[in-house]
């Protein structure tokens, strides 16, 4: 299959730099115009200052976006979903410091000739690390542009012998109540599980990320390693992975078990298929005030649409 690098964003999609720079002045003027003095209560942003360990020189991937400004590091590390650390967007940044990322091992089992366990130190040496600037779209309607650091998932397939029965690959996140306080609450069916069709996992855009913004993956973003599938909604990217299982039948994932009518197995970014309770036609980039149009497959249609040829994407949402 011919893989082309992602098309540059059309000029119409790029916010004019003058407008972008003045977006906050707009709301500032709007609110201050009301003429009432400010009463300050600090907005908690515990995380965000870059103190991470650098991952050194990285390969610039041809799959990276080049015409879209990455979301500020502080925004990506102080806002996000990681329910093992709490239900609010700010919770992971507050509680993820409890996570111990060393020692760490990933078990690969299921439909493989021999189950194996890999230490994180070995995984980090599997392939040269690449920086991939990808769009990220959350099912809730917000989005970001993130410079992930990682390697293609296919690198794992070179190290395990998958049997002919394997059709799907399942990812299990860590579920340790000692480190993850909210595991004790039945917010979801723990451990968090996500899955892909094997051909989706093999796709060159699918990566195992071990860092972001040139640094080691912050704990609140899924350290020490997580899945990144840029054409799917963010929840498909399992964080803090401890087990990868190859299976024959489509597995039941955490969100499908929680709300089967709201979350589908494929969860491809699709502006034409609304979530049960909100539209997916538009999204809001972190830090921006106005919405922008959501692109089919999050802008990666040229690369991945072929995986779903002949499929009804409304039915297989």
């Amino acid at each position: 299959m011919l893989i082309r690098r992602p098309a540059a964003l059309p000029a119409s999609e790029i916010t004019d730099s003058a407008i972008y720079a003045s977006r906050r002045d707009f709301i500032r003027t709007l609110l201050l115009g009301a003429g009432t003095a400010g009463f300050g209560l600090s907005y908690g942003a515990d995380a965000g200052d870059r103190t991470g360990q650098s991952l050194g020189s990285l390969i610039n991937s041809p799959f990276s976006l080049h015409d879209d400004k990455p979301t500020p590091f502080k925004s990506m590390t102080s806002y996000g979903n990681f329910y093992e650390f709490g239900p609010d967007k700010e919770s992971p940044a507050k509680h993820a410091h409890r996570l111990r990322t060393r020692p760490w091992a990933v078990t690969v089992d299921g439909e493989v000739k021999a189950a194996k366990t890999f230490a994180i130190e070995d995984i980090l040496n599997w392939a040269p690390l690449e920086e991939r600037i990808y769009r990220m779209r959350c099912v809730e309607g917000w989005s970001a542009v993130v410079p992930w650091v990682g390697f293609p998932f296919s690198e794992l397939l070179k190290r395990v012998e998958v049997t002919g029965n394997a059709k799907f690959v399942e990812f299990w996140s860590l579920a340790d109540p000692e480190q993850m306080p909210y595991i004790r609450l039945p917010l979801l069916d723990w451990p968090y599980r996500e899955a892909l069709r094997l051909d989706e996992a093999r796709h060159p855009l699918s990566i195992i990320a071990v860092g972001m913004y040139g640094e080691v993956m912050p704990k609140q973003n899924g350290a020490p390693l997580r899945l990144v599938i840029p054409w799917k909604y963010g929840f498909k990217g399992a964080k803090s992975i401890v087990r990868i299982r190859f299976v024959e039948k489509q597995p039941e994932t955490t969100w499908i078990k929680s709300s089967p009518d709201e979350y589908g197995f494929y969860s491809n970014v699709n502006p034409d298929v609304p979530h049960k309770r909100w539209s997916q036609s538009h999204e809001r980039r972190l830090g921006e005030f106005l919405k922008r149009k959501t692109l089919p497959f999050n802008g990666y249609a040229e690369q991945v649409a072929g995986l779903y040829a002949g499929m009804d994407l409304r039915k297989n949402f």
Binding site: R24, I27, R28, L30, L31, L32, A34, T36, A37, G38, F39, G40, L41, S42, Y43, A45, P72, K74, S75, M76, S78, Y79, K89, W142, R284, L286, G287, E288, F289
Partner: peptide, 24 residues
């Protein structure tokens, strides 16, 4: 009763809406 509105004004003045200003 004006304090919550004041908090919004302060956020506007100090550029402190957090990562997702509209959601805030």
């Amino acid at each position: 009763c004006l304090l919550p509105f004041g908090r919004l004004l302060w956020a506007a003045y100090s550029d402190d809406f957090g990562p997702n200003p509209v959601e805030f």
